[in-house]
């Protein structure tokens, strides 16, 4: 059957028709907004974001020549890499622990899911209270136990504020990683571990030769998702510090929000959105390549 015949086959036509609503939906709600944002980035815009005159690459030049932009990019990269690494490593350790047979294991698993199951804004607000310098539980505990007589102003100084944001983001994200890894580990046959033990393999060898290869695909997918979510984690940064003090905890997504919805500079915000889109797309594509390469192997 030729390509044309296949294309015009009644069953194929029915399939296209069935796909039409979903395709229209995707075109309308995914591709059009992306295209519109690209258009905004090369046009002057009104303070409501409507397109005006063609501006070419002016807003890209302005943005790329602004040192604050590059500092924000650098901070976003550090933020994403550190948070994903911590979530992956700690998540893996917790998954290994939860995979061991012991009494109360089911209860422990339930406890670990709580941060992930809680609403992100509510978690962030609670952590804001905990880290409040004057009335917060954290400094009260540190001072009263004599651990730190003069603790930092967690949300008021640049480095402590950045670390606080990172802590809350990882605190919320670790359970997801742990549960996904745990699900993967439970899919590995116990026979493999028993055989390895008979051959005299230690815990580390079993982990590196059986567990890690066994959940390789899951690690790739989980870290990809985590990287995408962390890069775009607006909620935690905005609620905790609003990118302050002096914009020193801003990541790309909060800087974008400020440009668009506080300062009404939609063209510049669109440039930041395009940069975000390109970075995340590149990340997703390289991960997909890695994933499918592994599948083909």
């Amino acid at each position: 059957m030729s390509f044309k015949q296949r294309l015009l086959h009644p069953e194929a036509r029915l399939a296209y028709l069935m796909m039409l609503p979903a395709s229209l939906f995707i075109l309308l709600f995914m591709f059009y907004p992306v295209l519109h944002v690209v258009m905004m980035s090369i046009h002057d815009t009104t303070r409501l974001g409507h397109l005006r005159d063609f501006a070419g690459l002016r807003y890209y030049n302005e943005t790329f020549s602004d040192p604050v932009f590059w500092r924000t990019i650098g901070r976003t990269v550090v933020w994403t890499v550190v948070a994903v690494l911590v979530k992956t490593i700690v998540g893996m350790i917790i998954a290994l622990l939860l995979n061991q047979p012991y009494r109360g294991r089911r209860f422990s698993r339930m406890l670990f899911i709580i941060p992930w199951a809680s609403s992100v804004p509510i978690s962030a607000i609670i952590w804001r209270w905990v880290l409040n310098h004057e009335f917060g539980l954290m400094n009260h505990t540190l001072k009263s136990l004599g651990i730190w007589a003069r603790p930092p102003v967690w949300l008021g100084e640049p480095l402590p504020a950045f670390i606080s944001n990172l802590w809350v983001d990882t605190w919320i994200g670790i359970p997801f990683m742990a549960l996904v890894f745990l699900a993967g580990m439970q899919g590995i046959s116990a026979d493999l571990y028993e055989s390895a033990e008979i051959d005299g393999a230690g815990a580390l060898t079993k982990f590196s030769r059986i567990t890690l290869p066994g959940i390789r695909h899951i690690i790739i997918i989980a870290t990809l998702l985590s990287a995408l979510w962390t890069f775009n984690d607006f909620n935690v940064v905005w609620i905790m510090t609003k990118g302050g003090p002096a914009g020193l905890t801003d990541i790309l997504i909060t800087a974008l929000y400020k440009s668009a919805f506080e300062w009404l500079r939609f063209s510049r915000a669109a440039v930041l959105a395009v940069v975000t889109f390109v970075v995340l797309m590149a990340l997703a594509l390289s991960y997909a390549r890695l994933y499918f390469k592994g599948e083909n192997d």
């Binding site: 880290l131 409040n132 310098h133 004057e134 400094n139 102003v153 967690w154 949300l155 008021g156 100084e157 504020a161 003090p245």
Partner: peptide
């Protein structure tokens, strides 16, 4: 002034 003034908005500081 309160030690933690750097982290305080009006909403945090006035209750003091």
């Amino acid at each position: 002034v309160p030690d933690g003034y750097l982290s305080q908005t009006r909403m945090d500081a006035h209750p003091v």
